[in-house]
Design a protein around this nucleic acid. Sequence first.
DNA 1: TCAACTTCGATCACTTTCGATCGCTACTAT
DNA 2: ATAGTAGCGATCGAAAGTGATCGAAGTTGA
Lengths: 377, 377
Amino acid sequence: MSDSPGPLPDERRAQVVELLRRRGVVRVGDLATELDVSVITIRRDIALLSSQGLIRRVRGGAVLHGGPVADALAGGETEDSPAPQPGPDAEKPQVTIGMVVPSLNYYWPDVIRGVREAAAAAGARVVLRGATYRAADERRHLSRLIESAGIDGLLVAPTTTGDDGQALVRWLQEADMPMVLIERTAASGPYHEAMESVVSDHALGAGMAVRHLVELGHRRIGLITTVQSPTGPHVRHGWRQACEEFGLPLEGMPDVSTVDQWHPEWPKALESVIDQCVASGTTALLVHSDPEAINLVERCQERGIRVPGDLAIVAYDDEVAELCDPPLTAVRPPKMAIGRAAFGLLAARLADPDPERPTHRVVVEPTLIVRSSSVSA
Amino acid sequence: MSDSPGPLPDERRAQVVELLRRRGVVRVGDLATELDVSVITIRRDIALLSSQGLIRRVRGGAVLHGGPVADALAGGETEDSPAPQPGPDAEKPQVTIGMVVPSLNYYWPDVIRGVREAAAAAGARVVLRGATYRAADERRHLSRLIESAGIDGLLVAPTTTGDDGQALVRWLQEADMPMVLIERTAASGPYHEAMESVVSDHALGAGMAVRHLVELGHRRIGLITTVQSPTGPHVRHGWRQACEEFGLPLEGMPDVSTVDQWHPEWPKALESVIDQCVASGTTALLVHSDPEAINLVERCQERGIRVPGDLAIVAYDDEVAELCDPPLTAVRPPKMAIGRAAFGLLAARLADPDPERPTHRVVVEPTLIVRSSSVSA
DNA sequence: TCAACTTCGATCACTTTCGATCGCTACTAT
DNA sequence: ATAGTAGCGATCGAAAGTGATCGAAGTTGA
């Protein structure tokens, strides 16, 4: 060894990478001579750098990832000379998740953001498809995803009701692909084991709304949901349970599953609902979902019914509740947390070597956002 | 050391950083000579500066973040030479979890193993305390853990029933420390929001047992649990639900919550239970938990009642079910998965910068293990 | 197919570097 | 004046890095 000390080990390794970047190919013997160390040291350096995904080791030396030699040999990577991955782990192949949601509007963008955020943090890729709340359409998207190369698992919010929905669920159960249901539940197998799922606790959310209204002194609290909403039954269950817990009257209270605001019958349904509130002395109403709640508030004002003075309103979903005048108190499902938890659950299953990993179901809690439609100024 | 005092410690450290900025790489020996201090002083300086994220320590010296060496090796960082993080903490301190379980026997060792395994994978430390199924004892352990230095979060399976249990839960809710309940649930806050928890789906487990027995042709299925078991009510709920789903008779069927096998009244209770089975024509029995199931099988054999020929038995917990003769079919809660999921949930909360992260609850599915006590040879 | 040559990696010995521990000194607060 | 604390340096065992050797494996040419 020469009089002056050579470079530090990491400094030398950086030189190896730099020389390789310049030349595209390097030889062990050449580097040993240039850097004034033994060939075994250079071999060890190259082995380490390769294991870190920084260069590609070949016999006698190394080549640059993305350089002409590596490109010509693309696809012929070995386990101790892998192709570089953008993820944090050079040797870990990138996981690809297929995701099918019933809509790319309204509720779902925040769930999707949660999934993407968690996937980005984990170095995974997400292939997203938006369907249309119809089982047949959903199945078409799912078939294409499953049949396409490279999908490791599925995040899916399938239609589960009706004959078509039940058939879709059975088809999913037989798909033999890791999957997590989002905001849906289903059972499978001879003992009705549940499928893995991540859901909001809508019953608890509705219960929060009822408790909030009871705290404000209300005792006649009604419920409006829209037909065909998968969330509706859970909201109704929670509303009923909480009313029973407080001994509130259910008999004669508005308990309506109505058409949604796009339906031609909506204006009549809206009048009927308000009439029922007036007739029954209802002083507070939980409405799923936001757009219907906003319409209801506007129509009340037109009829001289003050909100919240005469009728306190709590909306559900908190998508656009804030835009109402007055801004609506609302129950907000934890959409981004749902997305993150769904990705996490699927990733845990994909990463778990145990083929008999038990099914996990995750329930995430909504938040009550108190605004002006339930509390007086 | 020269006559005049050297620079102040922080002054010297600033010089280290400045020299590093100029040169890109520095050696410990060189700096020690230049700054007229020992190499150990420079090593300590470099260690401190690295922990502050200002420089990157390598063997023999340091390199500049963003300098040529660091850039060339980017992506190849090791755990003791991490890339600088935007977070407040360049060298993430080890997370320490306190864990209090009601017993270090029977059910809990596998849960503890699950926690330890997940903690080891995450580089976290677990401080374990075994209590005695008494709220006062549990509270004593918890107080000591909370008051001790360095506990970041709690995994706890507290007594939740009785006045003492409810007081313990309220005390936990006010503790202002991240925690996850294991195999327990509790609500808190003005809207009865749930505390974070990881539980086995014992109702589903009981339902699996009933389905299994129905598949074997049984229609008169009884239930035996032991008083004061936190699992018992969930098992009973699932048994009832599944019986109702299949339209099985509940009236007149054994539905007993008995003393456990250590109780002096156990032999009489056992006789009574078997008498009820004979009198009611019960052909199958779900028994929580294993030791009582084994005792029951033995006593049946003594009375000439064949298992499973005359009475099919499914045990619950699968701790020692296999040791029976015949080996018992049993429902096995997912204990290690529970431990892993509990640690994961707490770790996710500790890692999440969002102070309003919603509460997550995880439900994990048991497994039915079919052995000889329910199927004929 | 086989021999010759090149390359690789395991093993061992040696050197360098690191960090825990302990003792000492200087400084500060009481 | 004294106790406590911070900073420093020496010592020593542990860990990391390096080089030599040798058998094994891969490549090439006849």
